[in-house]
Simulated scan of single mutants.
Amino acid sequence: MRSTKITSENLEEMFDRGEDVTEFFDFDSAVVEDKTETKRVNVDFPAWVVEALDREARRIGVGRQAVIKTWIAERLDDEAARRSA
């Protein structure tokens, strides 16, 4: 974690440009409250999809699983909004 102070606006601008902003977070003391029941699923992807997911994960500084979860959740939200419109 970087000891230099940064404004939320600067942090957001860096994130939007695709810069790695993880140095500004203290993951050792982070608290995550996840009261959502989870279920494990296995999905097989072609190698090119896994490689693309890994590139995107590196670009935004998160793990592959986070990319998959986020993209699927976004798509489900979009579909739900489309159906209710």
Rank of each mutant, 00 (worst) to 15 (best):
E23D: 15
V21A: 01
K35N: 15
F27Q: 01
E33P: 03
F15I: 11
E37C: 09
D26N: 07
G18R: 02
V43T: 04
V43L: 10
T36F: 13
T22P: 01
F24T: 02
F45G: 08
R17D: 05
F25V: 01
V41C: 07
V41W: 02
L11A: 02
E13W: 04
F25S: 00
F27C: 06
V41S: 06
F25Q: 01
G18P: 02
D28Q: 10
V21E: 01
M14D: 10
V31K: 14
G18D: 05
V49T: 11
L11H: 01
L11C: 02
D16S: 09
F15A: 15
A30W: 05
T36W: 12
E37P: 14
T22H: 00
E12A: 14
V32G: 01
G18Y: 04
D28E: 12
V50Q: 13
V50S: 13
L11Y: 04
F15L: 11
F24C: 04
A47N: 10
N42K: 10
D44C: 08
A47P: 11
L11V: 00
R40S: 09
T36N: 14
E13R: 09
W48M: 11
E23R: 14
V41I: 15
R17E: 05
V32R: 09
A30D: 06
W48G: 09
T38E: 08
W48D: 15
E12W: 10
E19L: 10
R17V: 02
A30G: 03
L11E: 00
F45L: 15
R17H: 02
D20Y: 05
S29T: 15
E19M: 09
N42M: 12
G18E: 02
V31Y: 09
V49K: 12
E33N: 11
